[in-house]
């Protein structure tokens, strides 16, 4: 059933759309990183008028499917006069969806800084900016880096969903190739292989980074 020469012949066609998938992934990740920060800060806000609605909206976005959110961005917004290209809608959808996940990562990072650090900063008369930039962030950012790396990989694997809003990425291309020749096996399997080849090594890299950071943290503590 599996035809090697046919499989090799469609590889270039598939490789050609890999950049589209990567643009959507990194674009979405950038949006998610930027949008995650205000969400994390708003959820920590002292005023309930800010933290409560933001918490619920983030919870809503996180527990509803990305596919439906993409459909809303791509098919429902034109009813209000906002027309987005498939790529823009895809990047925005991915970004907004995963910003709620990254907000949790940021929040966890900030909360992992012991209370004594805040108190010490106050005792040392540091300004708010100094406290954040010199004390809190240097401690809360490193542990979040591997987690963010994992989310980047998760987002990469979510990009086939963008085929539903007509973005011509890997899966759409594979389906088109398949329907031409009615040979779905090679095309779809190859897409899986491409995803595995890109995401598995990245996953290993993230794991190594995580171990490295843990070891460094331990050596700092030992000192």
């Amino acid at each position: 059933m599996w035809d090697w020469s046919y499989a090799w012949s469609i590889v270039p066609e598939l490789i050609k759309v890999v950049p589209i998938t990567l643009i959507a992934t990194f674009g979405g990740f950038a949006v998610a990183c930027l949008l995650g920060l205000p969400i994390a800060l708003a959820r920590r806000a002292r005023s309930r008028w800010i933290s409560w609605p933001v918490t619920w909206v983030a919870e809503f976005i996180r527990s509803t499917p990305l596919l439906i959110q993409l459909i809303v961005l791509f098919y429902a917004l034109p009813n209000y006069g906002i027309v987005l290209s498939p790529m823009t809608a895809g990047i925005l959808g991915l970004g907004i969806h995963y910003s709620t996940y990254l907000a949790e990562v940021y929040r966890g990072g900030i909360e992992s800084v012991p209370k004594g650090q805040w108190e010490a900063s106050r005792a040392l008369n540091l300004t708010k900016a100094q406290t954040w930039l010199r004390v809190v962030l240097p401690q809360s950012v490193p542990p979040t880096i591997p987690v963010m790396g994992n989310y980047l990989i998760v987002m990469f694997k979510e990009t086939p969903t963008l085929s539903a809003i007509t973005l011509v990425e890997l899966l759409t291309t594979a389906k088109a190739i398949g329907s031409h020749s009615f040979r779905y096996v090679e095309a779809i399997t190859l897409v899986g292989v491409i995803f595995l080849l890109l995401s598995y090594p990245s996953g290993l890299l993230v794991r190594r980074l995580e171990l490295h950071l843990k070891r460094r943290e331990r050596s700092v503590e030992a000192k």
Partner: peptide, 15 residues
């Protein structure tokens, strides 16, 4: 875990 859910769905259904 390394391939995408939608790719797996398509694979089960089409391939």
């Amino acid at each position: 875990r390394g391939t995408s859910l939608l790719v797996q769905l398509f694979w089960m259904y089409f391939a």
